[in-house]
Design a protein around this nucleic acid. Structure first.
Length: 325
DNA sequence: AAGCCGGGGTG
DNA sequence: CACCCAGGCTT
């Protein structure tokens, strides 16, 4: 008997499956969606606490659609890739109370690419549709010894292997295998359920082929921590299309309507390494007063920052300036 | 097809 | 320090 990959994978998954908050049965499409978006390029352990907070504040799609974008970004603060939050919010408002139930319709909503549309459709609506993420690419690249860039071939193989009527389980099992056994480094081949049919088991490090990374350019920014007598700090909203778009941050210069009192002093340098950028912020501080002219500039009192979207880098600068976040 | 978009855990 | 994570959007 020539047993298939699905035949080996599904029994293993039934016993090894992690208990994650978005796996509660019956699957709620909204919850599946939120988890899938948060999990884009983001590890499970990082997502879990964000997911719990998000669902507590926005328990339903309607609650999310009714909320202001700033509230959504506030709960996304620190998670990164903030376009995900903006698209999630846009899609919630666009889909009129309920998610569409097919991958083709989902694909038309903002933030739904090939992966997320297939994930929500198969996991929440039972559609027989394959998916490929970083885990699946790695698992299939090894299992079938795919040379070079394995992504496109992985999609073809995933479709070929998909067991009818069990797409959701199969997709989740494939990703779980990639996360728990067939890991990027030091995969646990001896305990792998598909080891007998894996072509890459003797050389897992060769698959998928390594991509070369471009060098990280250095961004040199300035930031001004202007504080008021009552402890408030002045924040400015970043342009939507910029890095950290739509989030609140320390201003680069003195905004219109603001007077600086006394002397400007240095707070040194704050740094943050991103995937494609190295950011170095030269930080200064001063006492100030006045009323900002732009609505995108605000005095934020201590404790008020929690209600705004703020990047991890901005949080570092605020901490350096002695502002509690 | 390639570049851009965060942040952090891990070897 | 390099690598990569339940990717999508833009050009």
């Amino acid at each position: 008997m020539n047993s298939t990959l699905a035949d080996r994978l599904l029994p293993w998954f039934a016993t090894a499956r992690r208990d994650l908050p978005w796996r509660k049965e019956p699957r709620d499409p909204y919850r599946v969606w939120v988890s899938e978006v948060m999990l884009q390029q983001t590890r499970v352990e990082v997502v879990v606490p964000y997911y719990r907070r998000f669902l507590r504040r926005f328990p339903t799609l309607r609650a999310l659609a009714a909320a202001p974008l700033d509230d959504v970004l506030a709960l996304w603060s620190g998670l990164g890739y903030y376009a995900r939050a903006r698209n999630l919010h846009r899609a919630a408002r666009a889909c009129g109370g309920a998610l569409p139930s097919t991958s083709a319709e989902l694909r038309a909503l903002p933030g739904f690419g090939p992966y997320t549309a297939a994930a929500v459709a198969s996991l929440a609506f039972g559609e027989d549709v394959a998916l490929v993420d970083g885990n699946v690419t790695r698992v299939l690249a090894r299992a079938f010894a795919i040379p070079g860039d394995a992504k496109a071939m992985a999609w073809k193989i995933a479709r070929d292997l998909l067991p009818a009527g069990r797409a959701g389980q199969f997709n989740e099992a494939l990703m779980e295998l990639g996360a728990m056994i067939c890991t990027p480094r030091a995969p646990d081949c001896p305990h792998c359920p598909i080891r007998p049919i894996c072509r890459g088991k003797d050389d897992p490090a060769s698959f998928p082929a390594a991509r070369k990374r471009p060098v990280r350019p250095l961004l040199e920014w300035r930031a001004l921590a202007l504080t008021r007598g009552d402890g408030a700090v002045l924040l400015a909203r970043r342009p939507a299309e910029a890095l950290f778009g739509g989030l609140w941050d320390l201003p680069v210069e003195r905004p219109e309507g603001i007077r600086i009192l006394g002397r400007v002093s240095s707070l040194g340098v704050v740094e943050q390494t991103l995937t494609h950028r190295e950011v170095r912020v030269t930080l200064q501080t001063a006492r100030a007063s006045g009323t900002p002219k732009s609505p995108d500039v605000r005095w934020v009192v201590p404790g008020g920052i929690v209600a705004l979207g703020v990047s991890s880098l901005a949080r570092k600068s605020l901490r350096r300036a002695g502002v509690s976040t």
